[in-house]
Amino acid sequence: MLKVRVIPCLDVKDGRVVKGVQFVDLRDAGDPVESAIAYDAAGADELCFLDITASHENRGTLMDVVSRTAEACFMPLTVGGGVRTIEDIRNLLLAGADKVSIMTAAVNDRDFVRRAAEKFGTQCIVVAVDAKKVSESGAPDRWEIFTHGGRKPTGIDAVQYAQEVTALGAGEILLTSMDRDGTKIGYDIALTRAIADAVSIPVIASGGVGSLDHMVEGIRDGHASAVLAASIFHFGEHTIREAKEKLRANGLPVRID
């Protein structure tokens, strides 16, 4: 039986982890590769690097991080952040990423998703959907795509957009509620379910995890195929193992090898 995936996400800036792993003693908590190895050992199902490097000149450091991670961890690695061109995707895949997450470039040019999927295959193209609720209270739920870390509205309907990128060849959707991101009050379940039920490809729930129950809700009620979390794991509040035990106790299939 296919298992539900638990995916820790590390923010990487200029080749260093922002808010690095603190649940084990690392020689260098800022080294993404050491954090990746720790999560590999802890039983993470996949790993996600989100590059938040501001300047394009420092992209080289990311490639080095991806390459060193792929040498040390034999688990799937998704890399996102600042992916603009087919060449960016190629470089990340060659460095050792298994999947590449694209966001703004897909919003600006939907055809980019098609070209990327045609070139590299659906299986490695993840489209990041950053959505915020825009409907008035009492009105039917509606979410829009926001770019620039949730600051810039686009007027694009999130559910429709998710269906569109699926048809263009996306292999997976990384869905982040910009309302919930960083709040620790749980995923936006209505949003997660609206998207997961509207598309045929797997959806990763992200944004707002504060407890293990939130992860259960993301899968059970939000119909996500995977849950992504950052601080809840990095600071040792919970281990990957605890998250999986919790999911399992709620009747959800997990991998504990």
Partner: peptide, 10 residues
């Protein structure tokens, strides 16, 4: 069931 079949299976 979602396609691709993506993730860990026995």
């Amino acid at each position: 069931l979602k396609i691709p079949h993506m993730g860990w299976n026995t």
